[in-house]
Design a protein around this nucleic acid. Sequence first.
DNA 1: AAAAAACTTTTATTGTTTAAAAAGTTTTTT
DNA 2: AAAAAACTTTTTAAACAATAAAAGTTTTTT
Lengths: 207, 207
Amino acid sequence: MIVKEQIVNQAMLLFRQMGIRSVTMDMIAEQTGISKRTLYENFSNKDELVEACVMQEIESRKEQAKRILEGSSHIIETYILFMWDHINRLRGTSPLFIKDIQKLYPQSICKQTNEFNNRMRENMKQFIIMGIKDGVFRKEINPDIASILIFEQIKVLHVEGGFETSPLSMFSPAEVFEHISINFIRGISTSKGLELVDFYYSKHKMV
Amino acid sequence: MIVKEQIVNQAMLLFRQMGIRSVTMDMIAEQTGISKRTLYENFSNKDELVEACVMQEIESRKEQAKRILEGSSHIIETYILFMWDHINRLRGTSPLFIKDIQKLYPQSICKQTNEFNNRMRENMKQFIIMGIKDGVFRKEINPDIASILIFEQIKVLHVEGGFETSPLSMFSPAEVFEHISINFIRGISTSKGLELVDFYYSKHKMV
DNA sequence: AAAAAACTTTTATTGTTTAAAAAGTTTTTT
DNA sequence: AAAAAACTTTTTAAACAATAAAAGTTTTTT
């Protein structure tokens, strides 16, 4: 079944570039170098193919998350590493990809990503609660509000009309994301937390 | 021309409660206790009346801004006072009011509010630049990105579908706004800045 | 002279039709 | 046996028409 993987990989290449809506099955067949018929013998419809792509993406993220958790010694280091991981993903992916999944597939496939997102938000909330207990985040912080707000801020990157409408369009999504992430964690931090943010930020600094 | 003021005041009462779209001219006439004809003799159409209301609101804000600037001894105190002023306004105004102005009147009237908003964003940018020079905000901050981001965050409060769609619906706009404002300024602050935020926040603390 | 009511006009929303593009299928070719 | 091409069906989006609500006007009443 190596051909199925081939198709998923080539489709992902196109999806990442142009989103899902504007990639046709003809394009995918051509890109993979197979006929449409063969394509449909492997995936009986587009949704099935998209689902396979999304699942692959989610799996990749889960594995990466596992690696990050194993490789970090403090929750703030974890946060910084997740930030860099996401920045790298943003750099290789058109905002259309995420946007299309959310707008076009709110039922079947989005179920997977929604579960994933809800788990992420819940993780973020627990992360904040842990940080407060640990004395790195301020105790005035409401973990519910704060965990929602960080994801709402990130949504700005995937806003309707791309990004072009927004005055943020002059800056790259990756740059804005870094700004948001660092400002957010510093905003909720105590002085002890800030020291750790500075420490781990310079430890993992990238260009 | 006391009757004109009467109309504006009564109309504002309704607009603040239910937005602009859902308030009819009949409702305004009834609320003011005059006939529709008299209403139209004072304002030849709804847009003119809305404009008068918006101008009154802008004037009120300008005066309040002047008072705040005069009454504060440091830019961080200014920021905290503006925050409380806005929280008080939010408490008395339905999100529909701002939403309707932005969605319904993007041309003539919105010109006024857009100018006002652009000036606010520019002020915010200058505020951040001053803060960096003064050593209260971090020098890594990009004043353009940061000034846009704070307004984008505030937009979450006026998002399409009210607020009801958003997971933030369980919290009051005022509460969320305070969270956003404090997190933002702490996020961009140096340790010197944080001390001042703490100082002025407790100085002006409200319930 | 202004309120109340009855009226006309505009605007905004809703549903319907139509046309194009892409999904999905079948036939033909190599 | 799979690619290429030709085909049919579905979806989507745009254009248009019908409707209802509110804007705006005129007439009638107090």
